[in-house]
Design a protein around this nucleic acid. Sequence first.
DNA 1: GTGGTCTAGACCACA
DNA 2: GTGGTCTAGACCACG
Lengths: 144, 144, 144, 144
Amino acid sequence: MINFHVDRSSSVPAYAQLVRQVREALRIGTLRPGDQLPTVRSVVTSCTVNPTTVLKAYRELELSGLVEARQGAGTFVTGTLGGADPHVMARLRGSLARWLDQAREAGLEDEDVQALLASVIGENPTRRTAPPAPGVGHGKEGAA
Amino acid sequence: MINFHVDRSSSVPAYAQLVRQVREALRIGTLRPGDQLPTVRSVVTSCTVNPTTVLKAYRELELSGLVEARQGAGTFVTGTLGGADPHVMARLRGSLARWLDQAREAGLEDEDVQALLASVIGENPTRRTAPPAPGVGHGKEGAA
Amino acid sequence: MINFHVDRSSSVPAYAQLVRQVREALRIGTLRPGDQLPTVRSVVTSCTVNPTTVLKAYRELELSGLVEARQGAGTFVTGTLGGADPHVMARLRGSLARWLDQAREAGLEDEDVQALLASVIGENPTRRTAPPAPGVGHGKEGAA
Amino acid sequence: MINFHVDRSSSVPAYAQLVRQVREALRIGTLRPGDQLPTVRSVVTSCTVNPTTVLKAYRELELSGLVEARQGAGTFVTGTLGGADPHVMARLRGSLARWLDQAREAGLEDEDVQALLASVIGENPTRRTAPPAPGVGHGKEGAA
DNA sequence: GTGGTCTAGACCACA
DNA sequence: GTGGTCTAGACCACG
């Protein structure tokens, strides 16, 4: 079961943080179709946000076809994202973790690391995602 | 000279996107003390935002001591962030770029990559940066 | 400019009624890309609903790519639906209107007429739309 | 015997969908006084809803005098709606079906057709049915 | 003035 | 108890 957390001091709206966390979990495989999301009420207590904020996040996920809310039962994952091979994912994750260790030994903070990745991604972009493309998908969450 | 771009469909406020881009540029070294930021007017035309939006971003940067507005001359970088050794930075950047190539060859999209980094960072966090202790793995929401 | 109205006694949620009216207007061509939707505040006064209700409707339309909200400017149509030839549409509309006249002369009420259409549509369905198919699209609004 | 179906993704409550389907069947004549409604148990299995949901629908129909529950026997139709001449009804149904064929040949989807009817009804409304006076053309939200 | 987020709380639909 | 809708009102971001 995914464990949400919201950073109230962030300029990213709370509901968008929740949406993002679900999407990330779907991408890295920690959330799979059939899994249940935390109940609205549990998120309310664990993150001290308002029920409507959670509802808004869940609703947005539902409209994008990633989850399904069942009255009286809960909210469940129905879609997938990324869909890369888990083994490959794990290998890449390992090598990235080693790189992170080096970066941290060199004194880089998390924000440095994120900036670096954003920069490297932006340098030779792959037109597989949709950076400035305003299509049908979401395009919410963050711009660097 | 840094080249701003704002994503209007992002949930991150336009002014915060500008702030963030300056901070990232400072972190990765593409912006250094003495460098000039684009004039408000040029940002207005290039990003089609309102002058007050740009002013708000610059004011916020000035308040955090990173830039300085000189009447009639423009806005100039006066502070630094991260301050890692440029050579080390370049080396890390190189290895990260190679990792990115692998990831992309494996079919990962940009969003996958970002999710992966967020997850790895969250797994063994360094308490040098931000506030919250991630459960599943994120700690990447943006700072304004 | 589309003119909303909400039936408070309907079991269809107010926000869904608004969404539906926009979608219908897009289908019959009374709303086209570039057109502005009524401001949230004007809908609030004309339909005596809460701002958040209107926002919710507009947000849903935005997520489905049909409209775009521009801060400080308003909400504008950006997508289309149906896209049938306006002339053909007008001709069909005419013949349907004549049929309606007959039906009413025969004593049918509006609810009869709607039930009849629902029945005829259900009898020989076209698999162009998505009646019980839960795909990516909305699927909200009503079931007969 | 009427064959219920509920669309769980609809914003119309499940019980209201059942009520509506009975009312429509009464209007178009597929359900007549004396006919039996499906047992609660059968609806539960065929639509995978909760017994209380079906009971709520049947109770509402009973309160409006359309059906009558006979202990141990089932629920039976006792009232009528619309009451138009069946022959006229059949004729109108036929001409509507022909119109539908034309519309579909012209490429209209079901949602287009529904929007068109709503628009035509709203244009010159008969004040025999519901409450509000449409501006653009709808008057079709459903009543439970 | 325009859209957008969040809160607090009431009430409904469903299992 | 679970999700869902609506209200009332405060405050923010933008033009």
